[in-house]
């Protein structure tokens, strides 16, 4: 007797599942299958090689630090764009999305040129003893660049919807401006901040295009994990590439699960209201 009132359930769900299965799930299954080819021992040997470890460490630590920096800068930029009015605000607001829109290869060569020892920024940093291009610092700079819009874009709607009267209430209760910020505003922004952090992190961990140009790709020093995969592929070591791919997937899922747990915790005051 039960029928669906709106049409198209079977066809839309069927199509979506088939498409998703063919495009995403089947290939990922191939990845898992190929990776299993080298066995647990082989996987451990591969992952414990110093070069792999160094690359994974750079990808993960670099991404975490970059996402943290993005959380701080993103909060500043988001705050300024939402709360203050100044000429050109719209333009700067649109500019925030540039790292989304600019192809990574273009960002990569542009950043490299900019931070090279003779580049616009590099020439000022070089005398200070700061080398960016072809160092781990360059990897970090590229990761900040690609992850930048996430925090701003997740924060903006939340910032805009923050009730002004809550801040006014805090001030009327005698709180200093900075106290209001750290005790009232920041906790309310925390869930969105964490979402932005997670997105920036996920993006930076796997980032390839913008990083490889500026990294210099010096083994053990400025080589990122995705590049190792490419190199293994070029050597026709498919199982090794697949194993590294699985390791990277596992790492990014672990990080995302961690962040979502943090998020649930920071969101706890919203759970009750249904």
């Amino acid at each position: 007797m039960r029928r669906r009132v709106l049409p198209g359930f079977g066809i839309s769900l069927g199509y979506a599942l088939a498409y998703l299965g063919l495009i995403v799930l089947l290939p990922l299954a191939a990845l898992a299958w190929k990776a299993s080819g080298i066995g647990v021992e082989g996987l451990l040997r591969l992952l414990s090689s110093p070069r792999t470890l160094a690359a994974l460490r750079l990808s993960v630590v670099g991404a975490v630090v970059a996402a943290l920096v993005n959380a701080v800068i993103g909060l500043l930029v988001g705050w300024v764009l939402v709360r203050y009015r100044f000429p050109g605000r719209r333009l700067f607001d649109a500019l925030v999305d540039l790292p989304f829109a600019l192809p990574t290869a273009v960002a990569g060569i542009a950043l490299t040129t900019l931070y090279a020892p003779n580049g616009w920024l590099g020439q000022w940093l070089e005398p200070l003893g700061i080398k960016v291009a072809y160092t781990p610092l360059g990897v970090f700079v590229a990761m900040v660049f690609v992850g930048f819009p996430f925090v701003v874009r997740t924060l903006q709607p939340v910032l805009a919807s923050l009730e002004r009267d809550v801040e006014e209430a805090a001030e009327s209760l005698g709180a200093q401006r900075w106290q209001t910020f750290f005790r009232v505003i920041l906790p309310m922004l925390a869930p969105a901040l964490l979402t932005g952090f997670a997105l920036a992190l996920a993006r930076a961990v796997g980032e390839y295009g913008s990083v490889i140009f500026i990294a210099g790709n010096i083994p053990m020093r400025s080589e990122i994990a995705p590049l190792l995969i490419v190199q293994k592929l070029e050597q026709f070591d498919y199982a090794g590439a697949a194993a590294l791919g699985v390791a990277m997937l596992a790492i990014s899922f672990a990080l995302l699960v961690l962040v979502s747990l943090l998020q649930r915790w920071s969101h706890r005051w919203q759970e009750r209201s249904l």
Partner: peptide, 27 residues
């Protein structure tokens, strides 16, 4: 969650999976 999956996969891995599926040594 599956729809979002490609966002958390490294682009390199996104290409890799097709090599493993359709490449000379693939399925």
């Amino acid at each position: 969650a599956f729809i979002d999956l490609p966002f958390s996969v490294s682009p390199v891995v996104s290409g890799l999976v097709y090599v493993l599926l359709f490449g000379a040594q693939g399925w």
